[in-house]
Design a protein around this nucleic acid. Structure first.
Lengths: 83, 83
DNA sequence: TCGATATTTCGACGATATTAGAAATATCGA
DNA sequence: TCGATATTTCTAATATCGTCGAAATATCGA
């Protein structure tokens, strides 16, 4: 893994809320969790959480899929491994 | 490792210069390198490097010892392992 | 002790990151 | 289509971070 990509992944995790989200999703496994539930668990407003999820997604640490009205986020184990 | 400590360690590494310093020290092994040489290798002014070294040290990722006029920094493998 | 070398501390400025409120978008069921 | 639910985007305010120049501290050799 190149240095700029490593810095991006480390920066994504170097934040209390985001690290909590990531750990939660790792525990949740492949099924993942809807954004709203993550927001409640971590104690962050939905719009704020959304920006955090975008940062983790862009860093390759999590993935998302839409299911009905919800967007389900799950840990990206490949991205984790590279880091 | 608790979350706040993990965030501190990740934050310390989530920076291009600091990650470069850390990688350099890991490669350098137990002997470590003097601050001045690290500054030259990484291309940072000595005073700026000093603040970065302090951050890495406080996060438990590196150690320092004085040898004459130089201060030698080396990777802290215990701290690495915990993260 | 004095001057040279090595590193750190201090102070301040510009850049970046984090958060929140409001509005926009997407999906579903009636 | 309309209203409700779920999430995202936009914008702006505040806070934190990274960098530099200058000064301070530490060590050595003459």
């Amino acid at each position: 893994m190149l240095l700029p990509e490593a810095v991006e992944a480390l920066s994504a995790l170097a934040h209390g809320h985001r690290l909590a989200v990531f750990r939660l999703l790792v525990r949740a496994g492949a099924d993942g969790l809807p954004a709203g539930e993550i927001a409640r668990e971590v104690g962050v407003l939905p719009n704020t959480l959304s920006t955090h999820l975008t940062i983790l997604d862009h860093a390759g640490l999590i993935r998302s899929r839409r299911e009905g009205r919800s967007v389900i986020y799950s840990a990206d184990y490949d991205g984790m491994g590279e880091l």
